[in-house]
């Protein structure tokens, strides 16, 4: 579903933000949406297109937790590890998820079907513990939710 790196698409993204003030974050978001990550090629390309140094662009891309250098698995599960979820046993659910899929935090399953990342608050704190699977919110997580995730990602 993600495209392989290509300059034509990258240029299209940069043009889309022409005239915007401080467009680097929106550009990085769009690059990641298109290519599944912000590849090294993108860093050089953005730098030269925007008259920035590679160090500046790399500095920004690497500062934010969201931007990745390599694409994630086909599905992305973000599990909340913040206090409200902790108070409702979120760490125990998280341990089950990691065990069931055989990954650590930030890891991707061997078949590339799922990446599990930690996140710190999804704003679903009144229905903790919570997570987000491919951008869709999930809350009141329990064993049944873990099974539902497994089914959704086809494992």
């Amino acid at each position: 579903m993600f495209l392989a790196w290509n300059e034509a698409q990258a240029l299209e993204i940069i043009r889309r933000h022409d005239g915007r003030e401080g467009p680097l974050l929106p550009i990085l978001h769009d690059m990641q949406a298109m290519f599944g990550c912000v590849p090294v090629e993108a860093v050089s390309f953005i730098a030269s297109a925007m008259n920035l140094t590679r160090a500046e662009v790399h500095g920004v891309a690497s500062f934010y937790h969201d931007f990745r250098e390599q694409p994630a698995g086909r599905h992305m599960l973000k599990l909340c590890r913040a206090e409200a979820c902790q108070s409702m046993g979120g760490e125990a659910v998280a341990a089950k998820v990691l065990k069931q899929f055989g990954v650590g935090w930030g890891g991707t399953t061997a078949d590339g079907s799922l990446t599990v990342e930690a996140t710190y608050c999804l704003g679903l704190c009144a229905c903790a513990p919570s997570a987000m699977l491919d951008g869709e919110p999930m809350a009141r997580l329990d064993q049944a939710s873990v099974d539902a995730i497994a089914q959704e990602v086809g494992r």
């Binding site: 909340c80 913040a82 206090e83 409200a84 979820c85 608050c121 704003g123 679903l124």
Partner: peptide
């Protein structure tokens, strides 16, 4: 940028 846990 409401990042505090427990706020929504």
């Amino acid at each position: 940028d409401e990042g505090d846990s427990g706020t929504y």
